[in-house]
Nucleic acid binder design. Sequence first.
DNA 1: GTCTATAACGAGATAGAC
DNA 2: GTCTATCTCGTTATAGAC
Lengths: 200, 200
Amino acid sequence: MTTKRSPGTADRILDVAERLVQVRGFNAFSYADVSKAVGIQKASLHHHFATKTDLGVALVERYRHAFLAALAAIEDDAGGALERLERYADLYRTVLRKRRMCMCGMLAADVATLPEPMRSSVAAFFAENVAWLSRVLAEGKKRGELRFAGPPAAMAGFVVSSLEGAMLVARGSGDPGHLDEAARLILSSLRGVGARTRRA
Amino acid sequence: MTTKRSPGTADRILDVAERLVQVRGFNAFSYADVSKAVGIQKASLHHHFATKTDLGVALVERYRHAFLAALAAIEDDAGGALERLERYADLYRTVLRKRRMCMCGMLAADVATLPEPMRSSVAAFFAENVAWLSRVLAEGKKRGELRFAGPPAAMAGFVVSSLEGAMLVARGSGDPGHLDEAARLILSSLRGVGARTRRA
DNA sequence: GTCTATAACGAGATAGAC
DNA sequence: GTCTATCTCGTTATAGAC
């Protein structure tokens, strides 16, 4: 077991900046905001992340890494495809419950204003999600646990789109229920025709 | 028939600002940007829209109005529910083709930073869309043209979410195909079990 | 690694002439 | 209704002491 130290300054900066991006967007937070929340002067932030672009790139890459780790954790617990999809949707629910948007969903909106290294990292996030879901969907179909038409990658893209959109609309309309509804409809559709709702 | 004059300055300002919001977001465009594109000094903009909040409110309300007009046009052409849903999806495709995000989808991302009058207008946009879709879905189901479980409003919310999310992910991943795929899957799901893809 | 101080620029907004 | 000029503030970023 690795020794766990209290988070260093760079990590605390990333934690604060991550929250700010997910709530406000990349163009609507400043070094001054981070400075206040971390309890360190603005100039000191530049020692850890020389430019806002550097900070942004580090944010997306850490987020991608953490998300991939969460997906790996779902696979380790070795349930069926339906359970994995439920837990995938739960990742989104957890974010929304914190009144945040998925960081890469947020950055997808900001994409026209992002520096190139951030853009390609955001694109990679979606590609990684689609790849993981494609595997889950393909396996679930093979085992007869899931039912859907067309290639797994197309359905995987739809799952990501729908969950991201449901978070977005949930925030825009002030009704978190949109995400629950989306997760419910996607799952019940994949369960096939004689679908029963899951137990409470 | 009403006489159609060339657009006044206020309208030209709104046209430019609308594009900027849909591409860059509300926090990532400035009066200077609008000034350049319209060919008028920054100070003159304040004559038409005293504050950026005023401009923002006017933008969302004009957008809502235009969207409602587009929905009314779809109803006037009196096709079936499936055709109406296809044309609804086309509204989104047209926006994405211009490399824009739905204005209210964009503002939903920015929502934490928006002045209150804009926030409630964004929420109203989604409510209007869900209301319109609910009617189309309910009628289509009644006529046996559509097949889906649960209340029409829930499915309507899912349709909006999925299309908004598909636009978002399409931009974030640089692949417009996400929107086509989402539209295709939603429509084929609503067509019911023995679905055939529509003709090319 | 953190600080104070400041540079250099762009933001939203106002005053007042024409 | 548009202009020039200006104000005030916030932004990212740097210099240099400790």
